[in-house]
Amino acid sequence: MSGQEFLRTVREHFTTQGWETELQQIQDGVSILHGRQSTTPEQGLALVITGPNSQVTPNHVKYLLKRRQNQEDEIDKTFIATTVGLSEKAQKATSNYDITVLDQSDLETSANTTTTNQPSKQVGGGEERPAASAADITAVLSENSVQQLLKQTNGIFAAVGLGFGLTAILWLRFMGDSLLGELVGLTFMFFVVLMMVFSGPLVGALAGIYIQRRIEQTRKAVITAVASGFTGYLTMTVVGGLLTYLFLPSSGSGGSESTADTGANGATETGGELFSLSDLFLPLLGLAIPVGVVAGTVVYVINRYSR
Rank of each mutant, 00 (worst) to 15 (best):
W171T: 03
T50N: 06
P41F: 03
N59T: 07
Y63S: 00
L248H: 10
A227M: 10
R213F: 03
Q148M: 01
T262Q: 09
N144M: 00
A168G: 07
A81P: 15
H60I: 03
L246E: 14
T39L: 03
D98H: 07
A264E: 15
Q152L: 10
F157D: 12
V140N: 04
M1Y: 12
S120L: 11
F164K: 06
G126K: 06
L86Q: 05
V146C: 04
N144K: 06
D106R: 02
T235M: 10
V146M: 06
A205N: 13
Q25E: 07
A168H: 11
L242N: 12
R129Y: 11
I26H: 11
N70W: 08
V123N: 10
T187M: 03
S178V: 11
I137D: 09
P41E: 02
F230R: 05
N144A: 00
R214A: 04
T116K: 14
G44N: 06
S258F: 14
V203R: 07
S110T: 14
A90M: 08
F79W: 13
L202F: 14
E74Y: 01
A225T: 12
G125L: 03
L183M: 04
D73N: 02
A159H: 06
F188Y: 14
G271R: 00
P130Y: 01
Q122V: 09
G124D: 15
E74L: 00
V146S: 09
V84A: 01
L149Q: 15
A139V: 10
T116Y: 08
L206W: 14
G35Q: 07
T78G: 02
Q118F: 08
H13V: 02
A288S: 14
Q212M: 04
G18Y: 08
M236I: 07
T78Y: 08
G200Y: 07
A93F: 15
E20C: 04
L172K: 14
L23S: 06
T138W: 11
D261N: 12
G165W: 04
S87E: 09
L23H: 11
E74N: 05
A288L: 10
Y210R: 06
T116R: 13
P283M: 01
I211W: 12
G85F: 00
L23I: 13
Q37N: 13
I223V: 07
L149D: 12
